[in-house]
Amino acid sequence: MALKLSPIPKLVLKRLAIGVLTLIVVSAVIFWAVELLPGSIATEVLGQSATPETIAAFNAQFGLNDPPLWRYVTWLGNAVQGDFGQSLVTRRPITDLIGDRAFNTFFLAAYAALIAVPMSILLGLIAALYRGSLLDRWISSSTLAVISFPEFFVAYILILIFAVQLGWFPSLAGVTPAMSLGERLYVSFLPALTMVLIVTAHMMRMTRAAIVNLLALPYIEMAELKGMKRWWVIAIHALPNAVAPIVTVVALNLAYLIVGVVLVEVVFVYPGLGQLLVDSVAKRDMPVVQAACLIFAATYILLNLVADVIGILSNPRLLHPR
């Protein structure tokens, strides 16, 4: 009997393997999507009037003569080591372009997450506990409204109120590397608040749904019938079972934050990765687009992976196998 192993390591390993496989496949999709380009990258950048000599020189400079599979392997190998090659438009190393911007983007996402996660879990708990009350209905309808709004609508309303009317915060979040942490937090408050509002709405609704589902289960009713205090029931019986769904909700929304940051950065002219991505798409600067897409996609996949692994680890049914 003692040999009966817990299924957890196997499940986690399996999920990790799937995650790594997904990362590889997605990087291949990002790389080969470009190969579908009608014509070659050289004619795309140099224009139709380029001479064969300039095209050959261009192909040699960017290593476009190698077989595609070899280029993919070297591209991925270099990308893992932080080298994304050269921008087609500025001819500068992409790593220089991305470095500060990636930091800014993750800073903004973390800033928003630190406010949004505790707030939405608390609000979700309250709404679930007092479901059907006026407070719950008010929270539910206002979050539904926020979800229905486009990100830029929320952003412009905030700008109108806090930047233009009250003048408390700047409407453009032009952070620079020289800024202190305090200045940074102040300047990027409005973009962070925009993301907090949008993400909180999603997260709170999902938390509420998860808790409401739990509270309908027989063992919760049993605990209430034997006279336990409401909050005590939640802490002892409901929360351990709610960890997995809540963590999944949080990680899903963090993944959303990383991607949703693109629009918010453009509205507030925040110098982040999303802004760079949108600019590069307009200029059709493929290597930069690929690099940015790879970073965004990898973060998204990793966060989803973390959510699933924590979900497995915190599942009481798996932790105490019969």
């Binding site: 993944a255 990383i258 996609a297 998204y300 989803n304």
Partner: peptide
């Protein structure tokens, strides 16, 4: 679905 749709 593993790639965020806006990015894709």
């Amino acid at each position: 679905m593993a790639i965020p749709s806006l990015i894709f």
